[in-house]
Design a protein around this nucleic acid. Structure first.
Lengths: 201, 201
DNA sequence: GTCTATACATAGATAGAC
DNA sequence: GTCTATCTATGTATAGAC
């Protein structure tokens, strides 16, 4: 269940350090408001050196997004491959998604996906859109099945968009150090999001 | 149910035209990426003239947000004042919120609230935070009541945040001209968001 | 209240030495 | 692969005429 990105050696290569640092800064201050000088500073480089690794600032944003979403896709595919019960799949996808968001890297990437999409040029959007659709496709199957089995009610498309938006929005306000520990939080969130999935219902 | 802002005369005063145009542009292209020159152009002014009406670009963003949220607060207060049944209140608030989002002005303001919050300086955030909390407070009452009456399940705080985030996210993808007309869309969304509220359950 | 003209700061990106 | 130095564009905001 642990993300590949969390297991990186402390001395990762420069390109990777740029991506991870950029994700954190974009999350904290926004992409447009983060300057290449700030990013270089945080990585421990001078601004000119960034452009040896990336052709433009936009390319860094693309890398942040792609890095995060690819990782969650891989985990989701593994989950669905080893699990075929509709309820277990639905709950598993929700838990996986939330663990990804709560982990720093996944949350940073998710935040970028949600908030910085418009900062991408049309050309830069394409690869990200492809990845994005691949991930939504996985949810699509799971939700259709869930509705068919009475685990959720409503139009599957709207249900999926509503559910993902609600889960994603937690990057804005949930803090693992706060009142609710991650496990308890995910539990509560699941009850709010998918009341019909509860064991006691 | 009609927003006060939609009833403005076609020849509104310049300040109001700046606010409405800014809301539209910020929604379409983002605050940071909208230049004061573009905004002035769209209003039919030269960029210098904007600063006769507002001290800074940030002040325009604040006005966009405050304008929209104040309007929905007023309508929500009226709704709650004339209605005391928990189910009717919950459904009414959801419908009001969605109508506000789907209407141009309310949607633009909501979009700004969600996506441009970090562009505000700490001082500029204060008045907006106050308005925001006043609105959430209204939802707070309604949701607590709803949970107490079995119209929804889960932790009321998480439920409120999850619900509002899901509704708000529709500004990103719902288009009134598309497959679902506003009324049908709100109906479907209500079923996805509040399955326990359905008349048939 | 709007215009023209411009000040001033800061952004992303590049060139070439090391 | 990183540095220093700098180019060039573009941003917000101001001053003063009309």
């Amino acid at each position: 269940m642990k993300s590949a990105l969390e297991t990186l050696p402390p001395e990762a290569d420069t390109r990777t350090r740029i991506i991870l640092t950029a994700g954190r800064l974009f999350h904290r201050h926004g992409y447009e408001r983060t300057t290449v000088r700030e990013l270089a500073d945080a990585v421990g480089l001078k601004s000119g050196s960034l452009f040896h690794h990336f052709r433009s600032k936009e390319e860094i944003l693309v890398a942040v997004m792609a890095n995060g979403i690819q990782s969650v896709i891989n985990e989701a595919r593994a989950l669905l491959a080893r699990n075929h019960d509709p309820a277990a799949r639905l709950e598993g996808m929700l838990r996986l998604h939330m663990h990804s968001i709560i982990s720093g890297v996944g949350g940073d990437a998710m935040h970028a996906m949600i908030y910085e999409w418009r900062s991408l040029s049309p050309e830069a959007r394409e690869p990200i859109r492809t990845l994005s659709e691949a991930y939504e496709q996985l949810w699509h199957q799971v939700i259709d099945d869930a509705v068919a089995h009475g685990l959720a009610r409503g139009d599957p498309i709207i249900l999926r968009k509503y559910l993902l938006a609600g889960l994603n929005s937690t990057v804005r306000w949930y803090r693992p150090e706060g009142r609710l520990a991650p496990e308890a939080f995910i539990q509560q969130l699941q009850q709010a999001a998918l009341p019909d999935l509860q064991p006691d219902s």
